[in-house]
């Protein structure tokens, strides 16, 4: 029987961690882009667009990420569309991340005083101009800490993609356990790696909150 050293285990887990990081980045960046579109839709002046965005957000926040992954992976398969695991994982995570970021950012936009909208409107700015030059620059300052904080949820969310067969850190943990029969060591290391990814993000979120001094700005 082959002997596995701790280094063998760790090396394989770290190799798989690359995919956790890539998937997290793709979800976060893609989700940010879709989330921004959703944000604009959510605060649109047209009721139909607002309703669409609200339904989208409620649907994706109101169902488990795991179900969304299953539907993206197996559901589309039922229609004869062959979806590889990485595509289903990326797509589901992007759409899921977008629904949360849009709602976080909506809160930040609505925290900006109504007078800012009125002043910029009375100077003749259109809605997009108001958003771009007046509202978003102020909202972004408030949005940074919760957005960075949410990125931790995204990283942990990628663990679920192991269930549809995407080989990232959690899946690698299962595979290595099956080969080594050392579940405690392997999952202990898996947990430590997740912690090493998430903890700095949580800390920087707290740091940014203090640095941007969100609670005490703009009077």
């Amino acid at each position: 029987m082959t002997e596995f050293t701790l280094w063998d285990i760790l090396r394989n887990l770290l190799l798989a961690t690359r995919w956790t990081i890539v998937l997290s980045l793709v979800s976060f960046i893609g989700g940010g882009a879709v989330g921004l579109l959703l944000l604009f839709a959510r605060i649109s002046t047209r009721k139909a667009i607002r309703t669409f965005a609200r339904c989208y957000i409620e649907l994706f926040q109101g169902t488990p990420l795991l179900m969304q992954l299953f539907i993206a992976f197996f559901g589309l398969g039922l229609f004869g569309i062959d979806v590889p695991a990485w595509l289903a994982a990326g797509l589901a995570l992007i759409l899921w991340t977008a629904s949360f970021l849009a709602e976080i950012w909506r809160g930040c936009v609505e925290a900006i005083a109504k007078g800012q909208w009125e002043a910029s409107a009375s100077l003749g700015m259109g809605r997009l101009q108001q958003m771009r030059y007046v509202i978003l620059p102020q909202a972004m300052k408030i949005a940074v800490p919760p957005t960075v904080g949410f990125s931790v949820q995204v990283i942990k969310g990628t663990a679920l993609t192991s269930i549809i067969g995407f080989v990232e850190l959690s899946k690698a943990g299962t595979v290595v356990t099956n080969a080594t029969f050392l579940p405690f060591t392997v999952y202990g290391l898996v947990a430590l790696i997740y912690f090493a990814l998430c903890w700095p993000l949580s800390r920087s979120s707290q740091f940014l909150e203090r640095k941007l001094n969100v609670a005490h700005r703009n009077h």
């Binding site: 007078g115 002043a119 009375s122």
Partner: peptide, 11 residues
């Protein structure tokens, strides 16, 4: 228009 609360852009 000029407002009671000034409404300058703080950023």
């Amino acid at each position: 228009m000029i407002f009671q609360q000034f409404n300058l852009f703080p950023h």
